[in-house]
Amino acid sequence: MESRASPFLISVLCLGIAFLYLPMAVLVGYSFNASALASVWGGFSTHWYTELLHNRQILSAARLSLEIAALASTGALLLGTLAAVALVRFAKFRGRLLLTGMVNAPLVMPEIITGITQLLLFVSMLQLIGWPTRGITTVVLAHVAFCTAYVTVTVQSRLQTADRSLEEAAMDLGATSFQAFVDVTLPIIAPALLSSWLLSFTLSLDDLVISSFVSGPRSSTLPMVIYSKVKLGVSPDINALASLIIGVVGTCVLAAGYLVRRGERQRVAETRLATG
């Protein structure tokens, strides 16, 4: 659209963005507050960060959550990519409608329902076949299920815009359909794969509700520890932890965004070069 936004629209946009970012900025500010009281500014201090490094409970929960997130996002990437390929490339197959429903429903299903029903599944499975015991395994399985939905939707929309004729050209030149997919299409959808893996990783790292239901007695994830502390009121070391997480995630997302955009630009340039 070439016509400009009115001053009214621009001010709403700016206020809205301020609304989204102000609380996080304030939180980061508080994390450097020497005073344990939220209402008093006791001077600049990194005390809460050093405190954090000595909190064994938080450190072990963080480690557990990172392990779970790595496993779950990798599993979801594999399953989600397969589902996306199936939905985009195979126009008709038995179970297509079922698959479409199952990759879209988790996106809006309230987490609390998913959590309860999955717990009931795991408990019943344990009774029937003796597997899985509640713990890391059940958390990973539950996370893979909802992350797969996000991966499928992201990869699906990228695959739909990918140029099929390039793959056909490769097959005319003797490549098998598998080779053509791996050599031609995979590099094109690589940015979508990267961003959906990252998205799954952060979603898994952040999940409180589903994990609370399906995890076992000795597998408290980081959000579960944070939640139990936050519920009791303000805790300055959580401010420090939150600032660290926001900083790390923000940097990763910006870096990934930059890489993806650079890759896209390069690809467009190469295609232009190739097609003249």
Partner: peptide, 30 residues
């Protein structure tokens, strides 16, 4: 492009921590 990133970025940061951050603004001594 930049605005898209600005809007999406909070979605990537922890949901739980964002709710907690909002508490810092609206609580009685916030």
């Amino acid at each position: 492009g930049i605005l898209m990133l600005v809007i999406i970025l909070p979605f990537w940061t922890s949901f739980l921590l964002r709710v907690y951050a909002l508490e810092g603004i609206i609580r009685d001594n916030g």
